[in-house]
Amino acid sequence: MDTTEAGAITKKVEDFLQVFRKGEEFTHELLNENEKLRYKIVQLEGRTRTAEPSGSGQLNSLEERLRLLEEENRALLGRYQQVEEENKDFANRYVEVEAENNNLANLYVASYQLHSTLDFNESLKIILEIVMNLIGAEEFSIMLLDEKSNELSIVAQEGMATQPRAAIRLGHGIIGKTARTGEAYYRKGDPADVTDVDYANPLVCIPLKIKEHVIGTIVIYKLLVQKSELTAVDYELFSMLAGHAATALFSSKLYSESERKLTTIQSFLDLMKEK
């Protein structure tokens, strides 16, 4: 081997060693980097391990809050339904109270008017108006009992045919029986179903009573066309009329008679004074 060849081989070895050293350095660098990364991973794992318990706690607390809110929502829905039911009850009650109020107003108006006069004819007129305007009767009459003859005769009427009607004996027919027993009579069946009025078979017959003493009757034969049925307030009015109309008629009649007597006595006294 000559020196030129030996020199070339030495240069190749040195080049190889240089490449090898660079590779060694690079491998060291990679190992260092790897070490650093491993360290970072360990650090992150540690952090994750410490952070995990509070995250799950938050989740649990949120779940609990959600459960509570759902419960609250259910309770509110229940309360809402309850309030709605109560509201319906109040609405129904309002309608009932309104109807009751109207009934009481009618009764008040009727009784107030009945006792607003001591004039017999005016009392009769008021009773006619009540039966016509508040009850809604088209054909009806007021009959008074003559205690001497025991007969009931018409003293006022509305809507009925004008021919004179015979007096009814106490205890005879529906009207006579009502006056005898003092029990109100209501014909069975549809009150609006009236084709021909039968004066012997009235729709309603109310005794006019002062305590248990009957002084006459209110007899209804036919209702107005727009009045299809008798309502609760009508029965209340009948009941009120039975007592109040009787006292109104009785007291106004007594008052008229006493007025007449007073005038007669006064005239007599005046005559005496003149003599």
Partner: peptide, 13 residues
């Protein structure tokens, strides 16, 4: 013309 009606309307109104 009815005093009864007058009073009834008053109550309703």
């Amino acid at each position: 013309d009815s005093a009864l009606i007058h009073q009834m309307y008053k109550m309703i109104l």
